[in-house]
Amino acid sequence: MSDENPKDYASPACLAAEVAPDYFDPLATDPVAAADAARWRKAARAQLLAARGARDVQATDAAIADQLDRLLAQQFGGGPGLILAAYWPIRGEPDLRPWMARQSAAGLRIALPVVTAPDQPLVFRPWSPDAQMRPGRWNIPEPATTAQVLPQIVLAPTVGWDAGRFRLGYGGGFYDRTLAALRPRPYAVGIGLESGRLPTIYPQPHDAALDLIVTEAGFRP
């Protein structure tokens, strides 16, 4: 399979047409398979990012916000007093900032992730609609404070996702490291698009499965 021109998302990382998509052993450490998976992910990521612009942004983002309201009501009693880590949208990600502002006004404590160094877990800093912001790593806005909080719920934006609740992100591994490090581990919710569903992302030993995927169409447990 060409690294630059994958035939489709269902193609496994190697021997695409000759094996079942669920053959992949997530505990495998074979370096060749890992390299093949990395190349496949890079190609899939590029295609999914390019396709993001085709959606109805306003309708999709509103639908995801509605699904998150339903999740909070059903599983967290609405969420007042809980700390929820959201994200600042980049590269066409669902924009939940209006929802974050509404939830902040309703008593949910909102935080944003901050990258402090490469290959380190994220830290979470408190956010509110009137919070002072500053440019962080890669110029992504972050709260201009040194305060840190420990969220009970983490929203992790996805480029793609699969039925095992594994997340295809941008390749930095920040959410995987963070979920592995936090104790107690927060409830991790992937925020994705229905069009981002993949048969598998070929999970590696470092990949952390999420607890739930939320898209514009509903919950994907």
Score class of each variant (00 low, 15 high):
Gly53Lys: 15
Gly53Val: 08
Ala54Met: 10
Arg55Leu: 08
Arg55Asp: 01
Arg55Val: 15
Arg55Glu: 03
Asp56Asn: 11
Val57Phe: 10
Val57Gln: 14
Val57Gly: 06
Val57Cys: 12
Val57Leu: 13
Val57Ser: 14
Gln58Ser: 15
Gln58Asn: 12
Gln58Arg: 15
Ala59Glu: 15
Thr60Leu: 12
Thr60Asp: 09
Ala63Phe: 10
Ile64Lys: 06
Ile64Asp: 00
Ile64Val: 13
Ala65Phe: 00
Ala65Thr: 03
Asp66Pro: 00
Asp66Leu: 12
Leu68Arg: 00
Arg70Ser: 13
Leu72Tyr: 09
Ala73Phe: 05
Ala73Trp: 06
Ala73Pro: 04
Gln75Gly: 11
Gln75Tyr: 08
Gln75Glu: 13
Phe76Arg: 14
Phe76His: 14
Gly77Tyr: 10
Gly78Gln: 10
Pro80Asn: 08
Pro80Lys: 13
Gly81Cys: 05
Gly81Leu: 06
Leu84Glu: 01
Ala86Lys: 01
Trp88Cys: 00
Pro89Val: 08
Pro89Asp: 02
Ile90Pro: 03
Ile90Ser: 03
Ile90Val: 15
Ile90Leu: 02
Arg91Cys: 04
Arg91Asn: 13
Glu93Tyr: 08
Glu93Lys: 09
Glu93Ser: 03
Pro94Trp: 12
Pro94Leu: 03
Leu96Lys: 02
Arg97His: 00
Arg97Asp: 00
Pro98Asp: 04
Pro98Thr: 04
Pro98Cys: 04
Trp99Gln: 09
Met100Ser: 06
Met100Asp: 00
Ala101Val: 10
Ala101Gln: 11
Arg102Pro: 05
Arg102Thr: 13
Arg102Lys: 14
Ser104Ile: 02
Ser104Phe: 11
Ala105Glu: 14
Ala106Gln: 12
Arg109His: 13
Arg109Cys: 08
Ile110Asp: 02
Ile110Thr: 07
Ile110Arg: 01
Ala111Ile: 01
Ala111Arg: 07
Val115Gly: 03
Thr116Trp: 00
Thr116Cys: 12
Thr116Asp: 12
Ala117Met: 07
Pro118Glu: 11
Leu122Pro: 00
Leu122Arg: 03
Leu122Ser: 06
Leu122Asp: 05
Leu122Met: 10
Val123Lys: 05
Phe124Tyr: 12
Arg125Cys: 11
Pro126Gly: 05
Pro126Phe: 03
Trp127Ile: 04
Ser128Arg: 12
Ser128Thr: 14
Ser128Asn: 09
Pro129Arg: 09
Gln132Arg: 14
Met133Ile: 08
Arg134Gln: 14
Arg134Met: 14
Pro135Met: 02
Pro135Asp: 14
Pro135Ile: 00
Gly136Ala: 11
Trp138Asn: 03
Trp138Ala: 11
Asn139Ser: 15
Asn139Thr: 13
Asn139His: 15
Ile140Val: 15
Pro141Leu: 04
Thr145Asp: 11
Thr145Lys: 05
Thr146His: 10
Ala147Ile: 02
Ala147Asp: 15
Gln148Ala: 07
Gln148Phe: 00
Pro151Arg: 06
Pro151Thr: 03
Pro151Glu: 01
Gln152Ser: 12
Gln152Asp: 06
Gln152Leu: 00
Ile153Asp: 06
Leu155Glu: 09
Ala156Asp: 05
Ala156Gly: 08
Pro157Lys: 04
Gly160Leu: 08
Gly160Arg: 01
Trp161Arg: 01
Trp161Lys: 04
Trp161Val: 01
Asp162Ser: 07
Ala163Ser: 12
Arg165Phe: 07
Arg167Leu: 02
